[in-house]
Design a protein around this nucleic acid. Structure first.
Lengths: 213, 213
DNA sequence: GGCGCAAGTCAACAAATGTTTACATCATGT
DNA sequence: ACATGATGTAAACATTTGTTGACTTGCGCC
């Protein structure tokens, strides 16, 4: 496929010609980031097992061996991706006033269309076959559920508290299902609905499950 | 692991000893069914790519080669599973009076705990890397959404019809998210909630998104 | 009973995958 | 300028995976 003639290597000079920023040809941190971005896209859209390290390396335009160098292994790379996804989800469901949660979720779910990066949410539910990654994912989801429930007035010791937590987790489930049906399995018209299109239904959904305190 | 001593084959006599029905040792249709059941479980819990044909064959207690014989290929086996899952989902969202849709969904989502089979729903969203299977899945989901919307009074030519269809698909998304968070990623307390625990929140959710006609 | 075919077994194959090893090349400090 | 460590490359590796072909074994029918 990409077999280079064995003489002098072709080198990738093409981009640098029109590139305004003559960035260094060798930059470890940039290479790391390229790999992370490519991996997030691949993992989110194809899942962990179906993604090969060569896919990721090709997307990023770097050599396959660098994945092992910078992230130890494929699993290490996946965990690094999960970390970023967790941060993003925490930001969405945590540090946001309760009234604006629908907007935040809509933005998160719709983020795929705006940013090129498919929602990190899909990353969260991809079965990985890796125990460590499963733990991370579960922890993130659990914490997100508790934050959402807390924003709706949940207190851990309160009687009937489990009901509220359960309903917060159902909201979370709906969010994740939305992300999946928009990216991994593009279901129309849901997949092409805009961020604004989603806010109203999401508000109705959240109001129904988590009545404001 | 399961290495048999190479002398006379051990043969699987263990089960037949206490088995009240001395069923034939060689039954093509039964073997097919064993493979289908094992495959549904594996595909639903681990995903398509992470599941190996040897896993399935071992679970079913049959030889690996029989997968190719009866289903042509791993993809063929997956499509066969998708067919069954599609039937089940159609049954849930279609031939049910609108008022009882929450119960039907709860039953479907909770089905994992009651029957040993993890909800066929999770099968529906597993990315497969196979174009044909993707089409099947998308078709099933689309049809389910339309049936649900129709049960809520949606008519294709009606103005503002897209909004209703969109909201039905959001209900579908919530359902799928629920199935995932209960099986693939067991999130507590959601994962251990009983069927009855789910009915009330689901009714609230559906009432909010699909007001009865 | 014994014959024929369906059902099942075993071993091997090629392709793909994650990882490593040895080597080449750039960047930087002196 | 040039030595040295960081960065990137290429090829090879040991496994695993899906699939196939030749072979064996049991079932049903004459």
């Amino acid at each position: 496929m990409t077999a280079q003639p064995p003489g002098r290597a072709t080198r990738k000079v093409a981009a640098t010609a029109t590139d305004p920023t003559p960035r260094r040809r060798r930059d470890a941190t940039e290479t790391r980031q390229l790999l992370l971005d490519a991996a997030r896209r691949r993992f989110a859209s194809d899942g962990y097992a179906a993604t090969t390290v060569r896919d990721i390396a090709d997307d990023a335009g770097v050599n396959v061996a660098l994945i092992s160098r910078y992230f130890t292994s494929k699993e290490g790379l996946f965990e690094a991706c999960l970390g970023a996804a967790g941060d993003e989800l925490r930001r969405t469901t945590g540090e946001v006033p309760f009234e604006r949660v629908p907007e935040a979720i809509a933005h998160q779910v719709a983020g795929f269309a705006t940013t090129g990066v498919p929602g990190q949410l899909t990353l969260l539910l991809r079965s990985s076959g890796d125990t460590r990654a499963d733990e991370i994912r579960l922890g993130v989801l659990h914490q997100s559920g508790e934050r959402l429930a807390a924003a709706a007035g949940w207190r851990p010791d309160e009687p009937d508290g489990d009901r509220l937590l359960l309903q917060a987790q159902i909201v979370l489930a709906a969010t994740i299902g939305l992300a999946v049906l928009r990216t991994s399995t593009p279901l129309q018209p849901l997949a092409s609905a805009t961020e604004q299109d989603l806010v109203a239904p999401l508000r109705a959904l959240i109001d129904a499950l988590l009545p404001p305190p």
